[in-house]
Design a protein around this nucleic acid. Structure first.
Lengths: 229, 229
DNA sequence: CCAAAAGTGTTGACCGTACACCCATGA
DNA sequence: TCATGGGTGTACGGTCAACACTTTTGG
């Protein structure tokens, strides 16, 4: 490549990932003990520097794969953080992404290798730099997204019950929903398929398992349908 | 500053600004003839490289000031574009911002100095690199923002009529609104103050001028009010 | 048999939308 | 006087929120 822009400054560009999971009725976030100086050993989001041969999305996929072993996770660019002093080490521009992991797919053995730990959002430790701001922004975006896109399903097992789904929404939105209204609304979209099996984990009666019909969702979207709960 | 991250790559980081205005009943965008190689002389968004001593927001303010002579414009970070080949010159990560200008405040003499020109969105030329994608994304965001925040007023004169406001919304949303319903809804928020003066520019009868009460809006927001139209 | 969670309908309030006519005035 | 845009009210249908009891079954 020719040198067109010689004379302008270059910057470190990093990716930081806010990784959400849902487990035991709580919204959780995957955090790491930082391995680099400065702030080595403190809790932080998973991140890494952008390499020359990869796009921002590709870098994020790489980082997500490295820390979870999973591909094709739901991910979305959140915001770019660029305050001069945000990283006390050197100046770094950080592009934050948020991602959703089905905790059932996550291999907990990775935790030992990587120093990772799932933290309930409500009891999260103080993070390095501006990472707590990133998490706040991600939580706001997650609320909006679950309201207007079917991304909640990315956090649940592939087969789930309506009460589980409701409990997820309640965790994300930090408020209760009326169960009759919730069920009515979600079922009225006709995007859930009821299976013939019940989940008896959390009650004696058992709750029907459902699965989300992504195919049908995509075809409805083409006709102008808009998910809204 | 110490050198903590030596060995990692650095990248050019640029800001690109999607600048909207509203004039003659049309939504317009401010475009420039690019002064740098590559693609010198082609139409482009206004942009510039991030300097070491400024944050992303500060860089955007600087660029907006340089090209409009105006400070305190409404601006919002939109998205960061990072495909490897997006700039055929060298690799550049571009943080896109969108901004709103009251065209009455814009000094048209600047156009000669800077090679700037206001283009109606509907007749915009092909832009360099991925700038057309940036504009599309900005238009989507502008739709959302005008629906849920009172940012439309940033595009109108400080004193405006209801029909002007409606015409702005119609331009942004590319559809007509019923004028009775529109008026009802906007006035029911009690955020507009009617002045005793009429604007007779566009009709013999004249339309009342209004102004947006930002003070009142801010105090309502504190009480949990949410702008929605 | 009882505790605990799953599942089910109705009603009233509110909001969005559709719709048609009179008003004021400059030319 | 008439053409032009400004300004006004009502009625209907759909959506949201509030609300309480029955069902199932493991212990």
């Amino acid at each position: 490549m020719a040198s067109y822009y010689t004379g302008y400054y270059k910057h470190y560009v990093a990716i930081d990932c806010i990784i959400f999971g849902f487990d035991e009725g709580e919204l959780k976030i995957l955090l790491y003990k930082r391995v680099l100086e400065p702030a080595k050993g403190q809790w932080s989001l998973m991140g890494g520097f952008l390499k020359p041969e990869e796009s921002l999305d590709e870098a994020t996929k790489r980082i997500l794969y490295d820390c979870s072993g999973l591909s094709n996770l739901f991910m979305e660019q959140l915001y770019t953080f660029g305050k001069v002093e945000r990283d006390p080490g050197e100046r770094v521009i950080s592009v934050a992404y948020f991602a959703l992991i089905r905790i059932e797919d996550y291999n907990n053995e990775l935790n030992n290798q990587t120093g990772a730990q799932w933290w309930p959002i409500s009891r999260m430790p103080k993070l390095i730099f501006d990472h707590n701001d990133m998490v706040s922004k991600a939580l706001r975006k997650l609320k909006i997204r679950t309201k207007n896109r079917p991304v909640g399903f990315e956090l649940l097992p592939r087969r789930f019950t309506i009460p589980q789904l409701q409990s997820l929404y309640e965790a994300i939105h930090r408020r209760g929903f009326d169960k009759r209204n919730f069920r009515k609304k979600i079922l009225s979209m006709k995007l859930l398929e009821r299976l013939d099996e019940k989940d008896k984990e959390s009650s004696k009666k058992g709750a029907y398992l459902y699965k989300f019909n992504k195919r049908k969702y995509n075809s409805l979207v083409e006709k102008g349908f808009h998910f809204e709960i």
